[in-house]
C-alpha cells in the first residue's frame, strides 16, 4: 500500500473532497466511493467505452485515469443526465428507438454522444457510426443506436 492522497473535484455539479490511493482508477472511485454505479467497467483497457465520462466536458475513459488525476477537474457521469421520470432528450430517444437491450453499454454511449451532438447537431448516419466507433455494444447490432441518435438530433433541432 502507498499512502492515500487528498482529492478535490466537482462531480455532477457537487464539490467533492476525499482521498484515494494513487493506484485507484477513477471509475472505481466513482463507483465504489461515490456510489455512482452508472459508469460501467467492461474491459479496463480503454476498448469497450462503457466507463466513458466527461472530464471538463470531454469524453474520456475513466478506467484509464487514476482518481488522483481528477484533482481540480469537473466530472460528469451518466447520473447527471436525467431521472426515470424526467429523462434527458438523448435518453428518451434511446428509449423510443430501442437503442438498448441489456443497457450495459448505454451510459458510455450517452456520455460520448452528449458533447458530440452539441458539436455536430446534424450528423449523417456515416458520421454517427464513426462517432460511436469507440463504444462497443454486444446486444443491439448498433442499428437501433444509430436510429436513436438520428431521432435525438431531430428532436434537438425541432
Amino acid at each position: 500500500m502507498t499512502d492515500s492522497l487528498k482529492l478535490h473535484f466537482t462531480i455532477n455539479g457537487q464539490e467533492h473532497h476525499g482521498e484515494a490511493e494513487p493506484r485507484l482508477l477513477l471509475v472505481d472511485y466513482i463507483r465504489h466511493h461515490l456510489g455512482l454505479t452508472g459508469s460501467h467497467v467492461g474491459c479496463e483497457h480503454g476498448v469497450c467505452g462503457a466507463c466513458t465520462i466527461l472530464l471538463d466536458g470531454q469524453p474520456v475513459r475513466s478506467c484509464l485515469m487514476f482518481a488522483v488525476q481528477a484533482n481540480g477537474r469537473e466530472i460528469r457521469t451518466v447520473e447527471s443526465l436525467g431521472t426515470p421520470e424526467a429523462m434527458h432528450l438523448l435518453q428518451e430517444a434511446f428509449h423510443a428507438a430501442h437503442g438498448l437491450q441489456c443497457g450495459f453499454c448505454t451510459p458510455g454511449f450517452l456520455m460520448t454522444l452528449v458533447p458530440y451532438l452539441e458539436e455536430h447537431p446534424n450528423p449523417s448516419e456515416d458520421e454517427i457510426r464513426h462517432a460511436i466507433s469507440g463504444n462497443i455494444c454486444r446486444c443491439t447490432g448498433y442499428q437501433h443506436i444509430v436510429d436513436a441518435i438520428v431521432l435525438a438530433a431531430q428532436k434537438m433541432n425541432a
Partner: peptide, 9 residues
C-alpha cells in the same frame, strides 16, 4: 489514432 475518447487524453 484510436477513438476520440482516447485522443482526448
Amino acid at each position: 489514432v484510436a477513438h476520440p475518447q482516447i485522443r482526448n487524453r
